[in-house]
Design a protein around this nucleic acid. Structure first.
Lengths: 235, 235
DNA sequence: CGCGCGATTGATTCGGCTCAATAACTGTGG
DNA sequence: CCACAGTTATTGAGCCGAATCAATCGCGCG
């Protein structure tokens, strides 16, 4: 079970400046502080479940989280990730529909919960915040429409290369150029949209082609440009 | 080329009540009226192109429009449709990025153009409008994330069934239960994310299975529940 | 040391893509 | 109204990527 922890004030949250709340005034932040709660989730713990009702918005103070959807045949599809400063659950709140994905911690994570009322209060009272939210949801769409096209048109290998680059852009690389997040082969498969075995074989191919190498379980990117070529990123 | 037409006032636009503008006051609508322009596009004409800059928002007064993205290998991927009352181009305006898709008229269509300034003016001044826009963009995300999962996990045949149902929900059926939009086989393929030949063969199979029938080019849905079963829609 | 889960490899099958050829359809001009 | 040209739709054959099923390996942990 997740552990309630003493709420740290948004005013000195280390992830505040990366979040959609970065332009709020201190009185607005204090108001959120008064109503929010904070929880610590162990690796593998579920923060919320697809199909549930969103009573508010989740904001990641620290950690790495996967957001996934159950496919019709019971296979998980990872849709996006959340990390420090990212928010989750707002889409279903805004569209007044059930949560469209399940959030699971990929490592120990601290997540704050802001009640819906406070969130809608901000939207009603602060046009700049609305704009920020609109900018966020619009960016999500751009990302999503690219993903749809990729899924529909690229080969599994191209998608794998694409996803490795995406992981790099999302979580960055460590000092050894290894992707800075721990995912099982199955999770990578659920991200790429293929079978675990296929991922393993394709990782092997990428290794032979000297685009990546394996450092234990960690994936080291050797040739980012080569991966981008393979993934057929024109831009 | 598209023909400029005399702008019909939003105040008595037949699609106004279906649009995001439906809750605006008449003075707000008049302000839009003063700056907007209206154009008629023939079937096949391009309204805007992916990669271009969005100087404003497009609102469909009447017609059917496909929004598609160019895949890396030059294959079109249809991402969504727009019909009476729908707006287009707002995502790139909101995210301050290039237009992420190309809009082409599927039939003769009247499309109005609202300059960015007026749109942002509404957002700044009318929290209810912001909420409406947020609701819209959030719904888009829900739709998109479902589409990503479908593309990644469903077979081509399931996706075809899914898309036929989606077309039905978007454009409705005529008095003979035929899908109320004219798409070429290639366009259906670009929607499903497969080759034209595959679509043709699969349409043949669906016909054999008595889920659909063909009335000339028009696709008649015989067994909607059966299609939903096939598409593996659990909800 | 042995259990159990995740990773890996192998063999087989099959869906769906490609290329190629033909048929049906649309619009055009005589 | 017909002939023609250019699409668009359909059908066929062959091939390849990737899913599935099955077996083995490797490692962390009690």
């Amino acid at each position: 079970m997740s552990k309630k922890i003493h709420s740290i004030s948004c005013l000195n949250c280390s992830s505040w400046n990366k979040s959609v709340f970065c332009d709020l005034q201190s009185d607005q932040l204090e108001n959120i502080d008064n109503h929010k709660s904070s929880d610590f989730y162990e690796k593998g713990e579920t923060i919320f479940k697809e199909g549930g009702f969103a009573r508010g918005l989740f904001c990641v103070k620290k950690g790495k989280i996967k957001l996934s959807k159950m496919g019709p045949s019971g296979k998980e599809q990872i849709i996006r990730f959340a990390k420090d400063g990212d928010i989750m659950g707002y889409n279903s709140m805004l569209s007044k529909s059930k949560l469209s994905s399940t959030a699971v911690a990929l490592e120990g994570s601290i997540v704050c919960f802001v009640p819906a009322n406070d969130f809608f209060g901000l939207i009603k009272s602060d046009p700049n915040f609305s704009l920020k939210m609109l900018e966020l949801t619009a960016k999500n769409w751009n990302e999503a429409s690219r993903l749809i096209t990729d899924m529909a048109q690229k080969t599994t290998k191209q998608r794998l290369a694409e996803m490795l680059l995406w992981l790099k852009e999302t979580f960055g690389l460590d000092e050894e150029n290894c992707i800075n997040v721990k995912l099982s082969r199955e999770e990578i498969a659920n991200l790429v949209g293929t079978a675990t075995e296929a991922v393993i074989r394709l990782i092997g191919e990428l290794k032979k082609e000297k685009l990546i190498s394996l450092d234990g379980k960690r994936i080291k990117l050797l040739d980012i440009h080569g991966l981008a070529m393979l993934a057929n990123r024109l831009e």
